[in-house]
Design a protein around this nucleic acid. Structure first.
Lengths: 158, 158
DNA sequence: ATAGTATTGATAATCATTTTCATTAATGGT
DNA sequence: ACCATTAATGAAAATGATTATCAATACTAT
């Protein structure tokens, strides 16, 4: 369980392991798609910097180094990746969707609403209970969003 | 929506009391807004029938009895209500937002990612485990979002 | 009832996302 | 390496949900 520090209520940057180009190409082939420079560049852009990125942010980031990549390509490829579970789509409220390379270890978030600190946690019992709720209503579970909000120890003392 | 009782896990579809016009008017005044027939009709339409309704569905429902009510009015009023926590907005994937009169009893949602159906449930064990996670990290819990996604029985068969 | 102001509804505007389609590029077989 | 086949691309148009505009209308306190 890893602790990530944030400032105020801003979004938090999450460090990821760097992934090499060969791995990206393997991921693309694995989906049954052709390896194009655009797709590799999109994966590269997603693997560096902020974990949850919007299409707009991705587009602007790519503009600097590969100005030939268009919105449609990004949207299309993210859809492919999402369908193949290599990318996780997070939609909040009416905001544009955010995408992240699917982390190998599932986790949920405990967020401090005062200082923005985030604790990632994983609780097997909660996961099982979610499954049992789904079963009870004859749903086949495919995903979930669990975000806890509260005050961390430091902020409670203020 | 009908009531379904669970056994040990206490999943429940929430029962809603019918609400009378005077209560609706009080709610509107409480927000510091003027009482108009449109607003009362919108509240009436929301309080009968399906709990989670889209703007489109609400519009069509209102068309039959009050064809003078426009989309803009519905959107504006739902925004007011949501801001004042009298209505809860549920957004799922890229589907249109669904709205419900905020129930006095807390519940979470089970969403069908194919047809947009929403099932409400309440699970005391999950709530307790959330508390215990928060305690473990010395957080004081103030709220949470739990949305389950999957395929409902009908959509699994397609 | 009247004045003053909030509300309304039709329509235009916006914003994210998807589709279209003519052009270009990747791949597999030679 | 060279094609031929077919998928992929990018620009622009289309879509769908939601929000803003604004002149006409309806509440509400006086």
């Amino acid at each position: 369980m890893k602790l990530i520090k944030g400032k105020e209520n801003k979004e938090v940057l999450i460090e990821r392991e760097p992934i090499d180009v060969e791995t990206f190409k393997r991921m693309i082939r694995q989906m049954g798609l052709k390896v194009t420079k655009q797709r590799v560049h999109i994966l590269e852009a997603m693997s560096e910097g902020r974990a949850h990125i919007t299409v707009q942010e991705l587009y602007e980031k790519l503009q600097k180094t590969h100005p030939e990549i268009g919105f449609a390509t990004i949207y299309r490829f993210l859809k492919n990746m999402t369908d193949h579970n290599l990318v996780t789509e997070v939609r909040m409220g009416g905001f544009p969707a955010r995408y992240e390379l699917t982390p190998n270890q599932h986790h949920d978030h405990l967020n401090c609403t005062n200082c923005g600190k985030i604790v990632e946690f994983e609780n097997e019992s909660i996961e099982e209970l979610q499954e049992s709720v789904a079963r009870k209503f004859n749903f086949k579970l495919t995903g979930h969003v669990l975000e806890l909000y509260g005050l961390c120890q430091d902020c409670q003392q203020e």
